[in-house]
Design a protein around this nucleic acid. Sequence first.
DNA 1: ATGCCTTACGTTATACGTAATTATT
DNA 2: AATAATTACGTATAACGTAAGGCAT
Lengths: 279, 279
Amino acid sequence: MFELYQLEQLLIVADCGTLSGAAEQLHLSQSALSRSMQRLEDEIQVPLFIRHKNKIELNENGWLAVDYAKRVMEQAHSMVSGIRDYDRKRHTIFVGSCAPAPLWEMIPALSSLYPDLTISSEIRDSQVLFQGLQDGVYHTIVLPYPVESPSIFCQKYEEEHLFFSLPPAHPLSGSKALSLKDLDGETMLLRAQLGFWNRVTDAKMPNTHFIVQEDAAFNELVKASALPSFTSDLVIQREGEAPNRVTIPIKDEEANVTYYCCCLMKSKALMRFLTQEAV
Amino acid sequence: MFELYQLEQLLIVADCGTLSGAAEQLHLSQSALSRSMQRLEDEIQVPLFIRHKNKIELNENGWLAVDYAKRVMEQAHSMVSGIRDYDRKRHTIFVGSCAPAPLWEMIPALSSLYPDLTISSEIRDSQVLFQGLQDGVYHTIVLPYPVESPSIFCQKYEEEHLFFSLPPAHPLSGSKALSLKDLDGETMLLRAQLGFWNRVTDAKMPNTHFIVQEDAAFNELVKASALPSFTSDLVIQREGEAPNRVTIPIKDEEANVTYYCCCLMKSKALMRFLTQEAV
DNA sequence: ATGCCTTACGTTATACGTAATTATT
DNA sequence: AATAATTACGTATAACGTAAGGCAT
């Protein structure tokens, strides 16, 4: 049987039109390539080239062979990528969360518990997460409500409480507590990728103009801006109090969420990280 | 990139379950196969085997690799057979005839005119031949009637006249000439693969019982039998008079046919054989 | 004790590079 | 003269076989 490297060479030869050009691309001598193509013809037992004295060109068989070779090489490459993907997935824990905060402790906890595995996380709507858990897209998900199902293991993870983060000069910065609607209509800064929190703000602050900023630049932007924004107990726990900002509790019950960590019952072992200390 | 020989080896290993068994099938030493599979893993950069101290087995990646490898090897094999088929067809003249007799001279004539080509012939119904000519299935066909079409080149080839071949003891063996219906109802010997002649006999001799015999054994059977059969001027020209048989002309006009040789106008050059002497 | 896999080491086969040859532009 | 392909010959590399070692049944 011929070998894949010969098919690769054939494709380059077809592309170049000359052996010498193809040989150069292949970092191979002209003569080596010439003989390699001869061996290919010998293997198939059919001429693939029309040989002139100082010119070689593909004949009809040759062009057909090129078509076949492309398909075989594609197959071979998709074999490599397919297996690599499969292996990667086998070594990855896929986590889906309705909000960013739970991931901050979960990912390190899972990493330290499964040091050989990769943790892949994404923030999605709760319904998408729930469906994805059942479809095997996620190994574990974090929802803002508990799930009751015999096939799903669900456990309370942590709470998060939303606060307004106001510049001291803001008219309401002296308040003890505020409602979401109290700031509705203003322009606010908002982190990107907030997950289900966006549902809350959209519902309760329909007239607010949100300037959405990626996580990385968000804190800088807040520091340099006089616009109100949000923070939460988990954010503060992670990043400390924002300098030059007043943190004011939000009275709405939507501002308080309890996260629940779920996985399929058969993967219950995964949840060991809940009972261990995070690193 | 890995090579096809490694995929072939992988398939045998998967089939055998052990390296030593596979190595034997592959006429290869155990150690060579062991290293070859290690190289395969190195190429894909993913483990394919679970290695115990004195046992090796495919892991999940490995089984997936086997699936892929099967497909790649199939592709490679179909590449070889596809190209060979294509090449063979490029070197074959496909001839279709409504009856066997015209082929007896045509095939040698074409062979001597195109010594590098293979001649493939078959006997089919006239409509099938006509369609096949237009579809490119046949390069040239022989019909029992002329064709008038601007895209088809058609030329008279030769005539054939049907005779009864009777044993001397047959009641009608003294006749000067007979009609097909004169023998209808008897049991007759008939060559297989007679093409359009079968239409004639079926139509005009509906009550006759035909014992059909392959060409090879037909003459022997006729010699040893007292049953009537057919012959023709072209058969006699080819094989000589049958011994101990009386040849009687058939009066029906269907017993006389003129063969026409047709090809697509664009392949008219093919028909040079018509103007040359047969070998 | 036998079977099975891996590793080390020396060998062989196969593909390679260099160079010479021929032919074309 | 320059470009391009093939062929001959010596070489290098990559796969191979043998043999040794470890481990399990």
